[in-house]
Design a binder for these strands. Structure first.
Lengths: 198, 198
DNA sequence: ATCTTTCTGGAACGGTAGGTCCATAATTAT
DNA sequence: ATAATTATGGACCTACCGTTCCAGAAAGAT
């Protein structure tokens, strides 16, 4: 076998994630993608099938990368601190100066709910996985099963809301204050149950 | 002066709001709009300028209608109950059987943040007005100035998160449970301050 | 050097987008 | 009736969309 230099597939997908994350599915044209990924039309269709196929792949990549943030800190910090740092890391300073793209999964749910139910459901499943991670952390922190489930659902709602505000370029201090308030509520509620017996 | 029968402008705008709310800005084509509004291309451009102009008008109409829900119940119920019913009404049963469109303002922020900053900012301003309404209700309920501001920001985050889940067709009981939890947090926090000290 | 395989650049496709234009129909004032 | 005014239907425009196709360039295998 033989072929011209292979392009770096993973790197190309990363570029695509960045574009889709920033501009959404519909507003990202094939021309935009080809330029950013640095490959030709023909290679694109050979490698990814079509635009929608690439988007599915990007959703998966984003979701894995996003969950990894939480999974890694979970090994190194107490469970509640890991949860907090997941929220804070997503909204604090980033590698890029102006990275207020929210969450690609949330953006997808909103943009495509009435347009492409398959893509919307896929994004929703990934979000559900994150919510399950929240629940696991809360269990580790001592929450009762039902309490953990409720609090995880609440924190996912907070997460989604924070991502919306992020797209509006809310100030970082304001953002952190709201997140801190939400965690204060959850933690004091858990503490209350623990202190005054079961 | 003289002219053929005028079309009902307000009614046409209502139809457009419904479409934009459901499908978003980009995915709503002119053909969709003309059919729903029941008018011809020429009349459309004469009356609204262009698609973007109509969208601006729709954002305003939606925002006013949305705020009216809260303003009206505020006259007839205690402030915290009015706030709660704003959240519950937006996610409980509606006139239409499957009206899981979220909030048009939130949808616009997410869809157009990187596409049309003007429209995104306009939607953001309308959301800020709602947040100010939240704050006023909390003041009426006895919150201190800073406490009211913080809690209003928190509730706006909850509101935005709830709208995202709404587009994912979250079950109504789950939705109400999360909202109830959020309000429980805010109310018990306010009660704690009132009881002990100050 | 030749063959084989893989990727490339670019032309071309049909479809649809938002927007413009104009001849015609409809209505009121005179 | 006639004139003046205004909305209508629909053809038309340009631009771009995602996708397909193909001749040819590049590189390892023989």
């Amino acid at each position: 076998m033989s072929r011209p230099v292979e392009f770096d597939r993973d790197q190309a997908v990363q570029k695509a994630v960045h574009l889709f994350w920033q501009r959404g599915y519909q507003a990202t044209s094939l021309a935009d993608l080809l330029e950013a990924m640095g490959l030709s039309r023909s290679s694109f269709y050979a490698a990814f099938g079509d635009k929608r196929g690439l988007f599915v792949e990007c959703l998966d990549v984003f979701a894995v990368r996003n969950q990894a943030i939480l999974r890694r800190t979970r090994d190194r910090k107490p469970p509640m601190a890991a949860l907090r740092s997941y929220f804070e890391r997503n909204f604090g300073q980033t590698s890029e100066p102006d990275l207020h793209f929210g969450c690609m999964l949330v953006n997808t749910v909103i943009e495509l709910a009435a347009i492409d139910q398959g893509l919307c459901d896929l994004a929703g499943q990934h979000l559900k996985t994150v919510q399950d991670l929240f629940e696991a952390c809360l269990r580790d922190a001592g929450a009762e099963p039902d309490e953990a489930k409720q609090a995880a659902a609440f924190l996912m709602m907070v997460n989604e809301g924070a991502r919306v505000s992020d797209r509006q370029r809310i100030s970082i201090p304001d953002q952190l204050a709201r997140i801190n308030l939400a965690f204060g509520y959850v933690e004091s509620s858990m503490a209350a149950r623990t202190e005054l017996g079961r």
